[in-house]
Design a protein around this nucleic acid. Structure first.
Lengths: 189, 189
DNA sequence: GTCTATATGGCGATAGAC
DNA sequence: GTCTATCGCCATATAGAC
């Protein structure tokens, strides 16, 4: 792995943990055992480095879902598979997930457009198609977002929900949550 | 309004916008027309100021929902009323909502406990009670969180969802979204 | 309770040697 | 491509006068 990739890999982790203004170039340099000046050789400034780190972190997520779409399961099973994959991706790559959370919090219009077109578009279309197949008379966009929203919520809010009454151990088991979300959607069609 | 309240009120807005490390004491002092030293007279350090601002912003949210619980509507109407109120609170007080998002992102265990016990506990119990009434055989916690999660998602992700195919104008109308969420839940019971 | 002045250190970024 | 050294600025926080 060359220096540029090493810097980007570390930047993803540290930006996800500390946020943009929370991470200094000095800290980043220290963590990759380079000088600050060496980082500035590879990136024009801090903002460009951040944007490239976000893109880098998003670059390998597409293919995870392809095996769901390419399987010969039923539509219902595909919905379950997609939701399960979504949960797994977010749990397995917490840095990606936290970077996403920070981007959403920022809600910069141009960056939202970039994310939508460049990262989520094709997967979202496939999900909408699946929803249209399962419930032709419903608003596919609405139900696609409901699926994603529920999956994201259970992961992001787990640290809070654990402290509220009624919480059960099974609420943090991916397969259990995927099944709950899937049946919630299927029953409402 | 005294200086301390003035500082807290401004801090809520600015911390919500810029985050903890994104807001400097200089900026805050400037925005309330005081010196930095004056702020340090009222708060021991920046972190204490932040925590107090978070508490201050959370302090007036409880009562919004009381008129829902105290109304003589049916259980189904109460569910709709709660979800609608939740959406309204988040839309009307974006600073509160953004501070919440930042707290969730941080996911500090002690602070999550504080939020759960001190802020959300009683409302969450009332919602669970309602869920238990509507669907006695279901997991009330699971469905209560589903309601909250869906409401939160539609608001937080609107800037992104607008850029994805299938988005419609009605998706940003509070009443429309509240009805969608309510019927999604009710149909799945 | 608020000010001015200042201590002390970290910040992003650059110059220039190797 | 990486380094050391440094610039200029802004950060948090404090001292002491009023």
């Amino acid at each position: 792995m060359n220096s540029k990739e090493k810097i980007l890999t570390a930047a993803i982790i540290l930006f996800a943990q500390k946020g943009y203004s929370g991470l200094s170039m000095r800290q980043l340099a220290l963590s990759v055992d380079l000088s600050v000046a060496a980082i500035y050789h590879h990136f024009p400034d801090k903002n460009a480095l951040y944007l490239e780190a976000v893109r880098f972190s998003f670059s390998d997520k597409e293919q995870v879902f392809d095996q769901v779409w390419n399987s010969d399961c039923s539509a219902k099973e595909k919905l379950h598979g997609f939701i399960r994959s979504l949960i797994d991706v977010m749990l397995n790559d917490q840095n990606f997930h936290r970077l996403m959370q920070r981007e959403i919090l920022e809600a910069n219009p141009e960056r939202m457009q970039l994310l939508a077109k460049g990262v989520f578009h094709s997967q979202f279309c496939l999900l909408m198609q699946l929803m249209a197949e399962l419930a032709p008379k419903q608003d596919a966009h609405l139900f696609a977002t409901s699926a994603i929203g529920l999956a994201k919520y259970y992961i992001e809010y787990q640290p809070l929900l654990k402290n509220l009454p009624g919480w059960k151990l099974e609420h943090e088991i991916p397969e259990f949550m995927a099944s709950h979300i899937t049946s919630l959607l299927l029953n409402s069609f």
